[in-house]
Amino acid sequence: MESFILAMAFSSFSRLSENLIYRLGGDKYRSFIHIYLSWSKIVGEILASQSHPVKVENGVLFVAVQNNTWMQELILIKDDIIAKYKSIYEEEIADIVFLISSPKRKCKRRK
């Protein structure tokens, strides 16, 4: 019973934080927020761990990818990504541009 209550608390917190993100982003960033929050649902956990949406500009989604191998995987399913996004949010993405991105650097602590 406790785990059920805890799960409910986290799910309502998750919805609350998601609503806050949409309110802060407004209509201008709504499509980017849609894509960013649902990226792993759209492309799957493995591809999402190797890529992330960067921006949406004039209907074009820009996605940063770890390396050429993962970029090729995403290019092969680009039409599926566009179709899946459209089926979930009923919004159009005209195209997707994939960019190679260096891995995020970890900050070193100063002593």
Rank of each mutant, 00 (worst) to 15 (best):
G25L: 06
L99N: 09
V56N: 01
S87R: 14
G44E: 01
I100S: 06
G25D: 03
E73L: 06
H52T: 04
S14Q: 15
L6V: 11
N19I: 02
K55E: 08
C107H: 14
I77M: 14
V63M: 08
I82F: 01
F10C: 03
E92K: 15
C107W: 15
G25A: 12
P53D: 04
I21C: 07
Y29E: 11
F4Y: 13
S11C: 07
A48G: 14
A7D: 15
R23S: 13
K55A: 08
R23G: 05
A64F: 07
H52C: 08
I82D: 01
I88G: 01
G59Q: 09
E45P: 03
F4N: 11
L6N: 14
E90N: 14
H34V: 03
I96C: 01
Q72S: 11
S51G: 02
A94M: 07
S17C: 10
V56Y: 02
S14R: 15
L99Y: 13
I96E: 01
E91M: 09
E90F: 13
M71P: 00
Q50N: 13
E73N: 12
P53G: 06
R30F: 05
K108V: 00
K28G: 03
K41H: 10
S12E: 10
S11H: 12
R15N: 15
N19G: 11
L47E: 04
K55W: 05
A48E: 04
L6H: 13
K55Q: 11
I100W: 06
G44L: 06
S14Y: 15
M71A: 04
G25V: 00
E45I: 08
K55Y: 08
V65D: 05
V65Q: 06
Y85E: 03
L61K: 07
W39I: 04
S40F: 06
L20M: 12
K104E: 08
F4K: 12
K28W: 09
G44A: 06
Y85T: 03
I100P: 02
V65G: 07
G26V: 05
L6F: 10
E90W: 09
F32G: 00
K111Q: 13
I33D: 03
E92S: 13
P103K: 15
L37V: 08
F4D: 10
H52R: 15
L16K: 12
R30E: 09
D80Q: 12
S49N: 12
G44I: 01
K41C: 02
M8Y: 13
Q50E: 10
F62L: 10
E73P: 01
E90C: 10
E90Y: 12
I33K: 02
I33L: 07
E73K: 14
K104C: 04
R110D: 12
F13K: 14
S31V: 00
E57Q: 14
D27I: 08
R30Y: 04
W70S: 07
K55N: 09
L24A: 10
I82G: 01
N67T: 00
A48R: 09
G25N: 04
S40V: 00
R23D: 08
L61V: 09
M8H: 09
Y36F: 14
G26A: 08
S38Q: 05
S12K: 15
Y29H: 13
A7H: 14
K86P: 02
I21A: 15
S31I: 01
I88D: 03
I81D: 00
I33R: 05
F32N: 01
N67I: 00
R109V: 00
Y36R: 13
F13A: 14
W39R: 09
F62P: 01
N19M: 05
F32R: 05
E92C: 02
R30L: 09
K104F: 03
